[in-house]
Simulated scan of single mutants.
Amino acid sequence: MSAGWWGVVAVAVLGTALVVYGWAHDRRRVRAALAKAKQPTRSIPGVPDHTVPAYVTEDELTGPAIDPSVTSDESDLIAHRDAAATLPAGAAEGAFLNRADRGLAVLVRPDVLVLDADLVGDREVTALLSLAKTRGRPLVIVAPDFGDRTLGVLRANVRAGTVRTLPIVLADAAARRRAAALTGGRPIDEADLLSGWLPETAWGRCDGWIADLDDSWVLVEGRSTSDGGAVTLD
């Protein structure tokens, strides 16, 4: 082969190598940009940046840190469970049953958020946890479903003692509306959830929420079994 042909081959090989390098470099750049875009932002609507509390992930925990103590309020709620309103929806996982001796999750005077969309985004779950921490009450989240990563973040924050949270899986839309009406809140649609729009009217409350893995019992705020205030959801 003449020297001229060797020159053509060398140029072709060099050109191919440059194209491959450029393609690989561009692919790494795109991947890095996508990974950065998926990271949850700490900017949460309605909460000033300097007041946003930290949250944790399961990877940051070395072991469980749930307070195992049983309070008299929890025992009182369990004692009145049979007279409470009922919902055909239980805790998303056994990890949220803080009264493992009874196979129950028991939250005293929690806030209640009822979502009309699955809770799957890092930013959305971070916003809910941050607002709940600011409000200083346990949090019950009722949603059609929860993403695996979302449940991991909720588990981690329960274990760390950051926010005592109870995710309740309730796919039926009519039942979610009843849950919102029972606790005095309103269902939160997907657009409001994604935007972080959670006005005071969206937050429900109750005296207590008890759940196993199949059902929930709700003690309505300001009512007791003695005054006939319990409500049953058919």
Rank of each mutant, 00 (worst) to 15 (best):
L193T: 00
R137E: 15
V158W: 07
A156M: 13
G185R: 03
G147V: 06
T150F: 01
A202E: 05
P167Q: 11
P144Q: 04
R176Y: 03
R178L: 13
I168W: 03
P199K: 07
L151G: 10
G147Q: 07
G185T: 02
R137P: 08
V163W: 11
N157V: 13
R178M: 13
G152K: 13
D145E: 10
I168K: 02
A175I: 00
R177E: 11
V142R: 07
L193A: 08
V163P: 11
A143P: 01
V142P: 07
G161V: 06
A202P: 01
A173G: 00
P138R: 14
E190K: 11
L170Q: 04
G136E: 10
R164V: 14
A143R: 00
T150Q: 04
A160C: 13
S195V: 14
P187K: 02
L139W: 06
G196S: 08
P138D: 02
D189I: 00
N157H: 12
G185E: 06
R178E: 09
G161D: 12
W203R: 08
A191N: 03
L151D: 15
R176A: 03
G161I: 12
L151M: 14
A156F: 15
A174I: 15
W197D: 05
D192Q: 04
R177K: 07
A202T: 05
V153S: 06
A171C: 00
L170G: 02
R155M: 14
A171T: 05
E200I: 12
L194T: 05
I188L: 03
L166F: 12
P138T: 12
L198H: 06
R137N: 15
D192G: 01
T150M: 01
A143W: 01
L182E: 07
T150K: 00
I168Y: 03
P187R: 01
A191V: 08
P167K: 11
E200A: 15
D172M: 13
E200F: 09
